[in-house]
Write a protein that binds this DNA or RNA. Sequence first.
DNA 1: TCTGGGGTCCTAGGACCC
DNA 2: TCTGGGGTCCTAGGACCC
Length: 350
Amino acid sequence: MRAWILHVDLDQFIAAVEVRRRPELRGLPVVVGGSGDPTARRQVVATASYEARAFGVHSGMPLRMAARKCPDAVFLPSDPAAYEEASAEVMQTLREFPVVVEVWGWDEAFLGAKTDDPEALAHAIRTAVLERTGLSCSVGVGENKQQAKLATGFAKPAGVARLTHDTWWEIMGDRPTEALWGVGPRMAHRLAELGLHTVRQLASADSDVLSREFGPRMGPWYGLLGRGIGDTHVTDVPWVPKSRSHETTYPEDVADPAEIAERVAGLARAVTREVVDQGRTVVRVAVKVRFSSFFTQTRISKLPEPTREPEAVAAAALRVLGRFELGRPVRLLGVRVELDDVTAARDGGE
DNA sequence: TCTGGGGTCCTAGGACCC
DNA sequence: TCTGGGGTCCTAGGACCC
């Protein structure tokens, strides 16, 4: 039996959960995002159903634009608790197979499996998830996480696909570098400036050139990505977050410094309470400000000592805020707290 | 139609110490 | 008096992902 990695990805997860509890929405264009008000400013689409996508609606698009493109769509508010619960059902179903399940967010998981027929396993998983939860997923099969993840893209929707070293060049060789998992538009552009347009060209690029251009870690890593190499380790040990943040874009700009300070302190208290409830301790606090011009800055500071006191974190956040050149209207304020490391969390949290 | 929220990781550069 | 490196810590910003 051989080791395989499977990547399971729910199809249109958020929209599918909404349709599951409101069957009358099936087949209709559904757009989920923000407060669900298509006339609201500064809100964007979280997910659009396939029917809504046919009108050109996609995630990240302003809700008001979605409303123009597809006025008859059903607009719904985002309901994180419902997605959390549906996700847990899916993950539980996956754990009933003889596989190691590594959860990657609400709607994704990597599975480590030993089998001679990974496609049969993938189809069995698809069937079980659909029967048990009513949700459709796609499954990619690979020899590492990158291959499995990319295979899922070829499997969508509601299918199974395999991508291995044997088929890597045939399937990926002539695709643009941006098709790789970890190469975004910016990096694709920089690679193109070096004459590296396709996966094959990136794979055969000189490692020294990549290192010089992109740094000692990232450079060689891009070369490996191009050759279809990726992480082969799958673990079911739960992920321990390293930070937690809250940020808010206000429907109207905020200009009053006292109000800005009050909101930053409030965000700091809220985020601190949440991590303390999970037994964690705050070691650094960062403040993010986005001005009405969309110019965005972050300032961060290490605390004098680690703390679990919301007021101490709020006071530190206000000191950090004092390092900004305010006096201009802002559209977004955010606070992020960085947390103690895993061992410290274990010592303090149990 | 102006551009969300929540994360992770990497790099560069300055400060400081030896 | 001038010049040298290495190592570590810290912060700001960029890029990517869902």
